[in-house]
């Protein structure tokens, strides 16, 4: 069941644009791997190379050593959801899945099962032309699940989903990984994978700028405490008296390089009223922004 994905020196040039630049990474089973990068970073291009839709300029991408084209039954081995996957607008959703199931030689029963899994049973007989963005996304997910595959490669699966849909997707991806499957999910926003991913690959301008566990990324985050008080001057004085410091983080708000518990204690001792006391938000987000900004030459002459 466990399948490891290996990207090895993967490179793709479109004319003078380097969409993906010498990308080497491992995606492990039993974990959700977030594939992050801003718009145009090369996520979709990477996934399309992985799936044999785009021919790499150089490098390889393999599933336990086999290229996608060489898999005996791709639909049973890798479930895929890609950006810009289309549906014939005049074809009913159920028929779309029936076509794929027929081509993959899967039993008809699977169509009904995945329709139920993504919550599309009631809309299954409608033509996809009348589907909303979120419904299309669910239908795409249903297609990815058809072969009950040990590997899932999903390009921005949360696009267009409503909050319930996103929550469902998160727990669904987690449960798939807990079953030992390999789950690779791309996103251009960190919070989307923050609660789901175990590992992250961060791509910027086609280059891998970070890979590792989400925990590692988190520990690189700034940390500290965000605190709001009507009397920042007195709190600052109390903190400095205790050997710490504080920086302004907005009106009535300070950032303190201490744990929230310690800040609370010092404030109580000094009798300062607090309106808010929390771990500094956006720490991880900031790491992500820094990472993807660093490798961004503004002239775009990446060659």
């Amino acid at each position: 069941m466990a399948t490891t994905l290996l990207l090895d020196g993967l490179t793709k040039r479109f004319g003078s644009t380097v969409a993906v630049d010498d990308l080497t990474a491992t995606v492990r089973p039993g974990r959700v791997t977030g594939f992050l990068g801003p718009n145009g970073a090369g996520k979709t291009t990477t996934l399309r190379m992985l799936l044999g839709l785009v021919r790499p300029t150089s490098g390889t991408a393999t599933f336990d050593g086999r290229a996608y084209e060489d898999l005996a039954a791709p639909t049973r081995e890798v479930g895929t959801l890609l950006e810009a996957t289309g549906f014939h607008p005049g074809r009913r959703a159920r028929d779309h899945l029936r076509v794929l199931a027929a081509a993959a030689d899967l039993p008809r029963r699977r169509v009904e099962e995945v329709l139920a899994q993504v919550g599309l049973v009631d809309a299954a007989d409608r033509k996809t032309g009348g589907y909303s963005l979120g419904m299309r996304q669910r239908l795409g997910l249903a297609a990815a699940l058809l072969g009950d595959p040990p590997v899932l490669v999903l390009d921005e699966p949360a696009n267009g989903l409503d909050p319930q849909g996103i929550r469902w997707l998160r727990s669904f991806l987690r449960s798939l990984a807990e079953e030992g499957r390999t789950v690779l999910v791309s996103s251009h926003v960190l919070p989307e994978v923050e609660q789901t991913a175990d590992d992250v690959l961060v791509l910027s301008k086609g280059r891998l700028v970070r890979s590792g566990t989400l925990a590692e990324l988190r520990s690189a985050a700034r940390g500290g405490t965000a605190v709001r008080t009507p009397d920042p001057a007195r709190l600052r004085a109390a903190l400095e008296a205790a050997g710490s410091s504080a920086t302004d983080a907005g009106p009535d708000e300070l950032h303190v390089p201490l744990a929230p518990e310690r800040v609370g204690e010092l404030a109580a001792q000094a009798g300062v009223v607090l309106h808010r006391l929390a771990p500094a938000a956006g720490g991880l987000e900031q790491v992500f922004l820094d990472l993807t900004a660093d490798a961004a030459p503004s002239d775009g002459a990446a060659a």
């Binding site: 810009a84 289309g86 014939h88």
Partner: peptide, 18 residues
Amino acid sequence: TQEFRFGTATPSFLVTPR
């Protein structure tokens, strides 16, 4: 051509990479 126009070529070629 409809496979390319409507983007169904992607799922078609994913199910059958050959």
